[in-house]
Computed example of a mutant assay.
Amino acid sequence: MTAGLLWGIAGLAALDAFNPATIVTVTLILLAAPRRAGSAALAAILGAALAVMTLGTVLYLSAGAAADAIGGVLLGLRFVAFGAAAIALAFAGIRRLRDRRRTPIELPVWFRPLTALPLGVLVTSADLPNAFPYFVAIERLVDAGVPTSQGLLILVGYTVVYCVPCLVLLVVGLAARERTRAWLQSLVTRFSRGTVRRSVPIAITLMLAAVAVGSIPFWIP
């Protein structure tokens, strides 16, 4: 295990940390949780961490075992990572070809910290197929032949980095509650109401990006 490998995986984790699904979930809880918003947001972050660590561990161990017996496993993992990202970009591009009304998101009155934990697991698990940096990081670990114990420890570090933006958001939200709440509310209002207008240039840009990302596995050595 080299310093270059660690820095590379740290960079991938930092890129993956700005995951809109998890950050939006924490933001929504801080704004709309009927009670104990801070505890509920923390529970959701723990749920996200649990999803990242559990699914990553399963994928890492299974990919490592398969790589010893089956050739091309790492190449397949690479295609899965960038293929998922390309599909997500293409889908986003298609959606920009028509006007789309935003749907406000609300939390039910029975929402509690106890239900926030599985919500964090569910939201993050559903979004992990689009988290191509995670797949690339696991591929690098397996390809480098990192011992299992060290690889799992690195995945723990990856999970911690992944949760940092949400933890910062939680701390800032609790420390400067009114000011932060007003700022977050303005963001939620902006992105959860109104209509997303049709834009052919943006749609074409997203589709071209999908083609570019999807072609990456073909020219990576």
Score class of each variant (00 low, 15 high):
89 L>Y: 12
82 F>R: 10
113 P>E: 15
82 F>L: 04
119 L>A: 04
139 E>A: 02
88 A>E: 05
76 G>V: 08
33 A>Y: 03
123 V>D: 13
43 A>F: 01
147 P>E: 01
60 Y>W: 14
116 A>P: 04
145 G>S: 14
197 R>I: 06
103 T>F: 13
72 G>I: 00
218 F>N: 09
76 G>M: 07
65 A>C: 10
16 D>A: 11
91 F>A: 13
104 P>V: 08
53 M>V: 15
196 V>P: 03
115 T>M: 05
60 Y>A: 14
125 S>H: 06
128 L>P: 00
97 L>C: 00
159 T>I: 04
62 S>G: 06
204 I>L: 15
71 G>T: 05
21 A>T: 04
205 T>W: 12
1 M>L: 15
71 G>V: 03
64 G>K: 14
186 S>Q: 15
79 F>C: 05
155 L>W: 02
134 Y>L: 11
178 E>P: 15
220 I>Y: 15
176 A>I: 06
129 P>S: 10
137 A>L: 11
53 M>Q: 14
111 F>W: 02
103 T>I: 15
162 Y>C: 03
68 D>W: 06
184 L>Q: 00
114 L>V: 03
127 D>N: 00
81 A>Y: 08
20 P>D: 01
197 R>K: 15
87 I>K: 08
55 L>G: 08
163 C>E: 09
163 C>H: 06
105 I>Q: 12
131 A>K: 04
117 L>G: 02
117 L>A: 02
72 G>D: 03
210 A>C: 06
118 P>A: 07
137 A>P: 05
145 G>R: 13
119 L>P: 02
217 P>N: 03
115 T>R: 04
192 S>I: 11
191 F>W: 14
96 R>I: 09
95 R>K: 07
186 S>V: 14
135 F>C: 09
205 T>Q: 08
16 D>W: 08
13 A>C: 00
137 A>Q: 08
148 T>N: 08
51 A>E: 00
180 T>W: 14
147 P>W: 05
190 R>V: 09
212 A>L: 07
191 F>D: 15
54 T>N: 01
153 L>A: 07
216 I>A: 13
69 A>M: 01
132 F>D: 13
178 E>W: 04
152 L>E: 00
119 L>Y: 01
177 R>W: 13
151 G>K: 10
216 I>S: 14
146 V>C: 08
185 Q>K: 06
54 T>A: 04
149 S>I: 06
197 R>A: 13
95 R>V: 02
103 T>V: 14
213 V>M: 10
147 P>F: 08
124 T>A: 05
50 L>H: 07
33 A>V: 00
20 P>F: 01
165 P>Q: 01
144 A>T: 04
207 M>L: 11
192 S>M: 11
85 A>E: 03
94 I>H: 12
94 I>F: 12
212 A>F: 10
202 I>L: 08
136 V>F: 09
176 A>H: 05
187 L>N: 09
122 L>E: 01
16 D>P: 12
